[in-house]
Structures are given as structure tokens and as C-alpha cells.
Design a protein around this nucleic acid. Structure first.
Lengths: 158, 158
DNA sequence: CCTAAAAGGTTGAAAGGTGAACTAGTGAGG
DNA sequence: CCTCACTAGTTCACCTTTCAACCTTTTAGG
């Protein structure tokens, strides 16, 4: 009688797909990061700017921003401090809950965002979107959505 | 006459696909990292172990290992130092080129690798591979391969 | 009310990553 | 042979991420 189940190793096809996926991620992240560098932003910075610029009042509660960007509170706190020093963002107290803080986009943050966005979008197109036929992109989205849901619902468990 | 070309913003579909892709990456990386944690390994450690264990003589030149894992030399050097301290790997001089070094898998490194691999594979299946129908995985691979090539050929340029 | 637990955030130290400067060995051209 | 440019790899200084400890305010129960 077996107590251990035999390992289901990856098939060759699975292995290839998986490694390609990993590689694309790493390479793509590097490339996008590099393309943002001339503007003095990282992808983290950019993502925060996007989130804030899409929110009412150009502001978000720290926690909401943390979970929107899938970061820990601690990391976000440091991140916002840096961006505050760069005058892209400022912290503001929350009247209705005195524990809370808002991260608020500054004028300069908004301008930066608007100036950089076209370049970033071009970069995403050039290195990813425009390399995939339209159906492939839709296919990708359809396949990945359940994965994202699974992972989201699964956070902080075994 | 226009000097600036109008920005081709992402369509809604493109935007969704792109954001999902980003999210899956981040969430998946976190999850895999967490599943390796009980074994005292990071994904970087694991990847190095895999590369070495698949090489002749369980060894690779530092540069080759760096480019196989898409890391900078500097980063790899630190990484190997840590793994050397954990006795997973050891450095060995290269006779034929006295500038060069090999990273060599130790006995303990090999055992660790073999012990951990089944769990890691299970994790990859559970959180990714097995969530995708077989054709979706092949589709994914076919779509992503040209992207990987593009990015690889494009390293270190505008 | 009062208390205890939970939620919102920050902090500081330690670990990990980056890029440029550096050392040492190689190898091709004169 | 020399020398000069290149390759292999490490190191240093600096920045980012992580994790646990911490403080304050809110909420829920008794």
C-alpha cells in the first residue's frame, strides 16, 4: 500500500509552456522598467500614479492602494514615502477614520503621469500587445482570468 | 502638419488582458514563493538548483548560469555566495580558463533539489498548469514564444 | 462604560538587488 | 613578444523589499 502518491511531473509540453511563461515575465518586466527609467519612474511608481489618477479626488486610502497593487502595507508605506520625497504624491489625514491616511496625487504627479503614459503604453504595445494577434490576446485573457481568481481567493492559505 | 503621432491607447479588451497578465504574474510568483518557503528555498534558489542538476557534472560556469537564469552577473554572484553558505553549492576553479569559476551542486544541494521538486511541481500544477485546459496551455505557449524571442533579441537596446 | 481584540499605518533592521568601478586573465594584431 | 581591448567575476555603495514590533484608533462584547 502506497502512502505517497507518485509525482505527476510536467510533460514536455507543459514544461516548455511554463518556462516560456516565466521567461516572458522576467524579460518583459525588465524591458518595461528600462523604458520607464529615462523618466525617473519605476513600474511601481507608475502603477501607483495610474491607480490614483483613476480614483475620485485623485486619492486613495493606503490600504486600498496596497491591495489594489498587491503589495504589503509596509512596502507601500515605504514606496509612498519615496514618492512623497519626489513630490509625486502627498499624504493626507482621513477625517472620518483617524487611523487612516490618503495618498493624494500632487499636481506634479498628475503632470508626470500624463507625460509618461504615452511612452509607457507604446512600450507595452511594442513588447507585448502588438506581438500577439488579437484572438491570441482574447484567448490569453480568457485563460488567465480563472487563474487570477483562483490565486486571489487563495491568498494567505496553505 | 503633425510632429507627434497620436497615442494608440489600449482598448478595453487589451487593457483587461494586460492587467490580468500582470496580476497573474505577481500573484503566482508570491504563491510559488510561499509554497517553497517551508523548505527554506526561494524561487531563485530553486531555479539555480534545477539548472545545475540538469548540467553535465552538476556544474555550470558563472556566466552561463547568469544568462540561463536571466540575472546580472552581480546578482548571481551574491546569490551563489548565499547558496554556498547554505551548502547547496560550491565554487570551483576552472582549469582551462583561470578567470572562470564553476558553480557546482553539492551532495546536499542535490538531495534538497530532489526532495523539494515534487512539492514545487505540485504547486505549479495546482496554481497554474492544472487550471488551464490543455489546448489553452498550448495556445499560450504558441503565443508567448515569439514574445520571448523578441525580448531576448532586444536586450540592451533602446 | 470598559476592556480586549482587530484594523490602519509606520518603523527599523536585516536581506536582497542594482550598477558602476575594479581585478585578473585572455587573446588578437602589430 | 607586447600591448591593448575584451571577458569573467567580484566588490562597493546605494536603493528596495521583507518581517516583526510597535502605536493609535475603532469596534464588539459583556
Amino acid at each position: 500500500m502506497e502512502t505517497e502518491t507518485a509525482t505527476r511531473w510536467l510533460t514536455d509540453a507543459e514544461q516548455c509552456a511554463w518556462r516560456t511563461h516565466l521567461d516572458v515575465n522576467r524579460l518583459l518586466t525588465h524591458q518595461l522598467e528600462r523604458d520607464l527609467q529615462p523618466f525617473g519612474l519605476t513600474m511601481n511608481d507608475y502603477e501607483i500614479l495610474v491607480n490614483l489618477s483613476e480614483s475620485e479626488g485623485l486619492r486613495m486610502r493606503m490600504s486600498d492602494l496596497a491591495s489594489a497593487t498587491l503589495q504589503s502595507k509596509s512596502r507601500l508605506s515605504h514606496q509612498i514615502t519615496r514618492m512623497e520625497n519626489a513630490n509625486l504624491v502627498r499624504r493626507e489625514n482621513c477625517e472620518s477614520d483617524r487611523r487612516g491616511l490618503f495618498a493624494v496625487l500632487t499636481e506634479h504627479g498628475l503632470e508626470t503621469m500624463q507625460r509618461v503614459a504615452p511612452h509607457h503604453v507604446a512600450s507595452v504595445r511594442r513588447h507585448f500587445i502588438d506581438l500577439l494577434p488579437e484572438e491570441a490576446l482574447e484567448e490569453l485573457h480568457k485563460s488567465l482570468t480563472p487563474v487570477a481568481e483562483h490565486l486571489r481567493s487563495h491568498r494567505g492559505k496553505p
